[in-house]
Design a protein around this nucleic acid. Structure first.
Lengths: 212, 212
DNA sequence: TGTACATCAGTGAACGCGCGTTCACTGATGTAC
DNA sequence: TGTACATCAGTGAACGCGCGTTCACTGATGTAC
């Protein structure tokens, strides 16, 4: 980003950019953040990086490849954030679980461009093994947390952890994409999305018999 | 749709199309259903309707105006479906509530193009009063249902109906957009989205003390 | 340490394409009398 | 019932634009000896 902005950057950086791949990703994130996944073009990213329109082809097969790369990075960071928030279930599973929810929303809010690339880009499915893997890893954190929490219940009343995880994921995603889009979605709501999610999770858990 | 397909449709329909506005909407829905909200252009819709590229301007100011019109219609149908499903809370609020959830998913599944126009089109906010109104009307059904259901609880334990409605909406939307997109989203899940939603709603309601 | 060479990562010009939009126009339709 | 006229809803040609993509090229960098 910062490179491309300076006038005559060329003289500074010489013929080779030095870090074009990263610069293109930065530029793309910028554009996606502003206008959504459909709102960035290969050419524009090249321009923003201060480079000829042919240059990106040295680093990405095409626009979708760049998008998939971004989505993959997004899922990796997302997964890492969730994992940190879970923190192995410390200090106790219930509050660690809430932290995961908070981390989910925090990511959607602070990284709307990544979030959009991850969930709204309509990438052709199965185009990238690493992308799929990164996405599964992120989900695995929620699943693991659900498993731990469900384990507190006697076997007889224990809900399937997979189902719990899907519910929590869906609720989080729903709140994130309806109410917490960092890029000014259309709907506003009488309470902060974080509180809304926390309250929802509390009700849900108590419905499972996991009230505090 | 059907008109535009027939070879030499012109001779049949003459100089005037007769129903171009509708034909354009049909065409746009078709394209959106196939490639998402970003995947339709004014020109392509005109072509699909068998009409010159200048013709659409007689009916819509621009692409966004067409998109907004579709989103508005979508919300109107959506709201009507939800209202039918609620059916004034008959035969009893709990099962009517579940019907609303089913109707929500059914719409997202059977009308992915409308759903995408409604929730993924990134229309400039406040561009259309009627659109906003239609969207509020749809939400009002969920809110009303929540109100009725919450009314069964003693005042002391009664949750805010607005919050309930937001939770249910978010859960439904999350499940719809993650797992039930009619247009083959990337994720598949070990149980039907309808069951997943119903189970989630049941747990949630029971968490509020509204178990059957 | 210097030189020759291979490779890498850019350039810039060019292309075909489809889109959005405008314009003067014209065929079809409806209405007043 | 017929005619004159206004209005409506299309045409089609044209424009400028930005995009994606290819191509032969060349400056910069790294490495073998």
């Amino acid at each position: 980003m910062s490179w491309s902005k300076q006038k005559g950057g060329r003289s500074r950086r010489g013929y080779h950019h030095g870090n074009l791949r990263e610069a293109l990703i930065e530029a793309a994130l910028d554009l996606i953040g502003k206008t959504g996944p459909a709102g960035f073009t290969f050419a524009e990213a090249a321009r923003a990086a201060g480079v000829s329109p042919a240059a990106p082809y040295r680093h990405f097969r095409d626009r979708d490849a760049l998008m998939a790369d971004i989505a993959q990075r997004g899922f990796e960071r997302f997964g890492a954030n969730l994992k940190d928030a879970w923190n192995d279930g410390k200090p106790n599973p219930s509050s660690a679980f809430k932290n995961v929810g908070r981390a989910y929303l925090a990511f959607a809010r602070s990284e709307p461009a990544y979030y959009a690339a991850m969930f709204e880009a309509r990438l052709p499915p199965g185009m990238n093994r690493e992308l799929d893997h990164a996405s599964e890893q992120a989900f695995a954190v929620i699943r693991q947390a659900s498993e731990t929490l469900a384990g507190k219940l006697p076997k007889k009343n224990r809900p399937p952890a997979m189902m719990m995880a899907l519910h929590i994921w869906a609720l989080s995603h729903g709140i994130a994409s309806l109410f917490a889009r960092g890029d000014a979605g259309r709907r506003s709501v009488p309470m902060p999305p974080e509180d809304l999610l926390e309250a929802g999770v509390l009700v849900y858990l108590s419905g499972l018999g996991l009230g505090d």
